[in-house]
Amino acid sequence: MTVRNRGALAALAAGVAALTAAALVACANQPAGTVGAEEASTLASPAPTAASAPSVPVTAGELPAGPKIIPPVRLLIPAIGVTATVNAVGINERTNEFEVPPSVDQIGWYRYGPGLEAEVGSVVIAGHVDSAKQGKGAFFRLRELDQGDTLTATGSDGEARRYRVVAREEYAKTKIPLDRYFARDGKPRLTLITCGGPFDAKARRYRDNIVVTAVPA
């Protein structure tokens, strides 16, 4: 075998090795993927309104009373080892974004939306996947949840309510249909949100959101 042939063979071998390594890395870094997207979207459709009653509803024009909402205070997801305290959170005034609790082992319930008592609409809980300073967050493994996994949300009334995962979806943050997940109508459901997808190290930002939808079990 000539020197030249050996060089060529070495180049071929190196090329194969490089491509194999690249393929392995690519496989290991598959996005979470999406299951149950159709079911999640069906849940969000408002129920058809009953035919309007013949008589006109009359109410006393009293000032609106304080809402009777039951906030979730604790969330358990055995399948991915989550036991987290839930804080009631709102909107960051500066960014107009969901105010996820800064401590990554705590998660936030959107206090403007429905609470656990709601018979319609989406109860939204969001948590960090991780943080540069604090490491892994409560929802680090949210992307591993699958259809049929169960979780338990305990309300401020002490009652534990069980839910069953029906969908896991991944959306680019620029395309996620947030209106659907923050809806106050449609079937009662629990929506868990965190970050995921490719990470932009310069902007310190994930490209995607992972959304898990669960219904009362």
Binding site: E97, G127, D130, G135, K136, G137, K173, C195, N209
Partner: peptide, 10 residues
């Protein structure tokens, strides 16, 4: 939006 991670581990 729902910003919920800046670590990059995931």
């Amino acid at each position: 939006g729902v910003p919920s991670g800046d670590g990059g581990q995931a």
